[in-house]
């Protein structure tokens, strides 16, 4: 069996038994999944004019400019589309938090338990070890994002007015989930590896996540305020930038992930 697969198996066997870590990944996903439904149901009930306020109107204008067929659509439908599109951005936090949590727990945990030395004494190459750990972090985080998105689509289909789904599950939405999602997961785990080389406990290492969460939150707020609408061009540009950043952080991570460096310089 390939050493990468052995590490992958080991990491997942460990992850399955780490309930706290699993919960810290699943709870945000459930919140991001249910929150938009709560909003589209509760806001019109609590404040009947809430879904028609200035921001929503601005958003409707933007949406109408980008997609002319939405100009003639019922404002309630626009409100639904607006909220559901917004939360696709929030779904990007799932791979960021998930990959970062697994990567930092995996590496800092090995440092704390002193399991790295016997592991590095085996014939495994450090690149294989890094690949195994990276896949073990990126795959579940990405998979969780996709599963959450799948449930999101099913719930939208079941609970939202007809026509919403087609305007939410569009090329921009799909690119965010299936292209940007894995790219931010890789960026997150790469940063996790770099920070883990210095951090003494996983929580300290996870603070780096703020660096990644902030741009997503900024986009979310800008869209929410109606200043900006994420288009396919922006998504592709973002993907190119993320790809470049992924290559850079993975190269730095691979340079740090050397036997001698790990044993003698990682604190």
């Amino acid at each position: 069996m390939s050493p990468v697969l052995v590490i992958l198996q080991k990491e997942w066997a460990d992850l399955r038994r780490h309930r706290l870590l699993l919960l810290s990944m699943v709870v945000p996903a459930v919140v991001f999944l249910l929150l938009p439904f709560a909003l589209v149901i509760l806001i019109p009930l609590i404040d009947p004019s809430g879904w028609n306020d200035r921001n929503v109107q601005r958003m409707a204008e933007l949406l109408g400019r980008a997609e002319p067929d939405l100009r003639r659509v019922d404002p309630l439908l626009v409100f639904h589309i607006y909220i559901f599109r917004q939360f696709i951005l929030m779904f990007l936090l799932i791979p960021i938090l998930g990959a970062l949590s697994i990567a930092t727990y995996s590496i800092v945990g090995e440092k704390q338990n002193r399991t790295l030395e016997p592991l590095l004494a085996t014939p495994i190459r450090t690149t294989e070890l890094l690949w195994g750990k990276s896949l073990a972090a990126a795959l579940p985080a990405t998979l969780l994002t996709w599963i959450t998105f799948g449930l999101y689509v099913l719930l939208m289909r079941a609970l939202s007015p007809a026509g919403v789904l087609a305007h939410v599950v569009n090329p921009v939405g799909l690119s965010l989930i299936f292209l940007i999602g894995p790219l931010v997961a890789v960026l997150s785990l790469g940063l996790g590896v770099i920070v883990s080389s210095r951090a003494k406990d996983p929580r300290t290492a996870q603070q780096i996540g703020v660096l990644l969460i902030l741009p997503i939150m900024a986009l979310f707020i800008m869209q929410m305020r109606g200043f900006f609408l994420l288009s396919a061009q922006w998504v592709w540009l973002g993907a190119a930038v993320l790809l470049a950043l992924d290559v850079i952080v993975l190269k730095i991570g691979a340079r740090l992930f050397q036997r001698e460096t790990i044993l003698t310089r990682w604190t």
């Binding site: 066997a13 338990n113 002193r114 790295l116 016997p118 004494a121």
Partner: peptide, 12 residues
């Protein structure tokens, strides 16, 4: 090699 601390995976 047996290292100074056993270095085992506790949850496994």
């Amino acid at each position: 090699i047996v290292t100074e601390t056993p270095g085992l995976y506790e949850r496994l």
